[in-house]
Nucleic acid binder design. Sequence first.
DNA 1: AGCTCCCATGAAAACGTTTACGTTGGCGCC
DNA 2: GGCGCCAACGTAAACGTTTTCATGGGAGCT
Lengths: 355, 355
Amino acid sequence: MAAATIKAVAREAKVSVASVSRALNGGSGVTEATGKRIREAAERLQYIPHAAARMLITRRTHTIGALLPDLHGEFFSELIRGIDLAARARGLHLLVSSSHESVEEAAAAVRSMQGRVDGLLILSGRVDAAFLRANLPHALPLVLLNSGVKNSAWSVLNMDNHAGALAMVRHLLQLGHADVALIAGPEGNFDARQREQGYREAMAKYAPGVALNIVAGDFTEESGYRAGRELLARKPRPQAVFAANDMMAVGCLGAFREAGVRVPQDIALAGFDDIPITRYVTPALSTVRVRIAEFGRLALERLADILEHPGQESRSADTLGFEIVERETCGANIPTCTPEVTFNSSQLAARGGER
Amino acid sequence: MAAATIKAVAREAKVSVASVSRALNGGSGVTEATGKRIREAAERLQYIPHAAARMLITRRTHTIGALLPDLHGEFFSELIRGIDLAARARGLHLLVSSSHESVEEAAAAVRSMQGRVDGLLILSGRVDAAFLRANLPHALPLVLLNSGVKNSAWSVLNMDNHAGALAMVRHLLQLGHADVALIAGPEGNFDARQREQGYREAMAKYAPGVALNIVAGDFTEESGYRAGRELLARKPRPQAVFAANDMMAVGCLGAFREAGVRVPQDIALAGFDDIPITRYVTPALSTVRVRIAEFGRLALERLADILEHPGQESRSADTLGFEIVERETCGANIPTCTPEVTFNSSQLAARGGER
DNA sequence: AGCTCCCATGAAAACGTTTACGTTGGCGCC
DNA sequence: GGCGCCAACGTAAACGTTTTCATGGGAGCT
C-alpha cells in the first residue's frame, strides 16, 4: 500500500482534511470527540505526514545542517554526539556534511544544503566573513564554531584556545621547566593561531628572557612525530614541549620514546583538547581539556534559540571554559601514577589573576 | 530578497517554467540557445531549486538516513566518515541519528525519519526482523550493518567477526600461549556474540584440552579494566587474553600495568577493531583490523545501488575482510619495537585452510 | 506546393500539506 | 421567537516543482 495521505485519513474519519490537520497539529478548533476520531483514524492507517509537503507550505524543515572539516578521531565523534543529542531533544534532525578539505568543497556543501535546513552549524577554521557572504544568499540562521570572524553579524561560539594555551604554558614554566617549545598547528587555522598566540604571550610574560622555540606541525600525529625528532636535534634541547593539539603530542611522545628520551624526567610534554587517547598513552598525557560534546550541545542550542526567537538577534560571541588536566607528562608529580588533577578556567583566573 | 523561484527565472529568461525545469535538469528538449539563456538567468538570480517542492513531486529526497547506536570514539567517526564521503560522491545527503541506547529510541528515530530519506543505513546490534517489520511500514530500502538478521528480506553487510576472532585466537595459540582467556562483549550484542563464537571455535579446534576462560565485559574501557583485574586474580593465570574489542583491551592493559604485570612477557593481549588508539598505547596493541571507513563506504554504495536500481533486489549478504595486525602485545617479536605485520583474511585462509 | 513528422515550447495538473476565509448551526439574550 | 455571535467545520488557495499533454512551426519529403 502506498503511504496514507491526509485525504485518506479525512475520508476514514469522515471529516475534511483541514480538520485532520488541525486535530493532529494544534488540536484547537476541533471538538474533543472528532479529535479523538481523527487520531484513531490516523493511527489505523499508520498515517505519517509527508515531510516535504509540510516543508513546502510551512517553510520550515526542522533540520539543521552541520558543516565540519575533515576531522578524524574523537573530536569529531564527541562533537557530533553533543549536537545530535541536543538536536533530538529539540525535535530537530541533523544533516551532516563533514570532511571538507578545501573551501570550494565547503562552498558546494553549503549550497547543496540550501533549503534543506533551517540553520547551519559551521566549524571550519577556514571560513571567513567573505566566504559566508558569498555563499549564503539570504539570512540563514548560523552559528560559527571556533571561527575567526570578529565583526560578526553571526553568532559565534569559541573554545578558549588562547587562555587555555596560555595557562598550560604558564603551568609548565611554573613547574620549573625553564624553556618551553611549541609544536604549532596548520597555518591559517584559527585554533592553531590562537593557541600559538597564547604560547607567545605566556612566554613573554613568564619567561621574558627565553627565546621562542617553534616548530611547524599540522595537527596530525605524523607531524607531531617529525616535530619531536626535530626538537631533540636542536642545540639546546628544550625542557618542555607544548603541542598545539593532542594528536601531535602523541606523535611527539612516540619520537621521544624511540630516541630513549624519558618523559617527563628528561623532557616535559603537554597537549591540547583532551581526546580520550591521552589517558591511555604511557606516560598519560597532560593536556588542556575542552568539553567537546558540551561544546556541540551548546552550539546546537544556541542555533535552536535563534530559530525559535527570530527577532532576538542573539548574535553574541561566547567562549567555552577549559581545564588544565595534569596527568603524567608535565612532571608535576614524577614519582608515581597519581590521580589526575584538574584546574578549570575560573580557578586559574583566580590563582593567576590574569587572562 | 526572498529566494528566487523557478517562476522568476522563467520570467527573466522569457520562457515558461517548464522550459526552465527542462533546461536545468535533463537539458534535453530545449534548444542550446534558450538553454544558455535560462542558465544565465538562473545564475543571475542565484536560483536554487526549492528542495521540498522537488521532493514533493519527485518522491525522492536524495537523502539517506544513518541510524547508529551510542557509539563513542573512533569507530563512530570513521564509520560516518566513510559513509559521508561516499554519499557526497553520489550526490546524497546524510541524515544522522546516533546515540540510541534503547530500542524505543531507535523506533522513534526511524519513524521520525519516515519520508525524509530514500533509504536507511542501520547499525544497531539490537534490531531484529520483528523490529524492522513493526517500524518500517512500506518497503524502505535498507542496508543492515553488523546485524544478526539472517532470513533477511533486507540487504546485510557484516564485518567478519567470527573469522577474525577465530584467526586471532589461533594466532595467540600458535605463538605458544597455551591458554587464552576471553573478555566478552555485552550480552545480546551481535558482534559480541560472533566474536565469542570465534573464540570458542578456535579453542575447541586448536587447544582441545584447555578449559574456556571467559570474563564479562560491555565494550567499554572501564569494563576491560575490571576484567583485567579479575583475570589476574584467577587461579591459573591465563597466558593470553583476547578482548572482544580494543577499548576493553586498552582498559585491561591499564589493569596489567597497574599490577606490574608485563605485556607481552608475562601475559599476551589482543583486541579487535584496530581503532587508532591501539597504535599509541604502550606496548602497542595487536588487534584484528577491520577497515571501518571502508565498511561505511561499502554500506552506502550498496544502499545507493538499491536506490538506483529498484528492481534488482540485491539483498545479498556480504562480509568485509579483516587483517591480523601484529604489533607488540601478542609477543610475536618480543625484543624490540618491530614494524607492524599484518595478515589479511585471504592470506590467513590460505595459510590455515579453514574458516 | 502540400503534406507529414518531429521538436521546441507552453499550459496546466499533480504532489500533500497548511491556513485564510466562508458557512453552518446552536445557544444566549433581548 | 427573533437576532447576533461564536465555535466547529468545510472549501479552496497556496507553496514550488516536475511532467504530461497540447500546440505551433519549421524542415524534409513527395
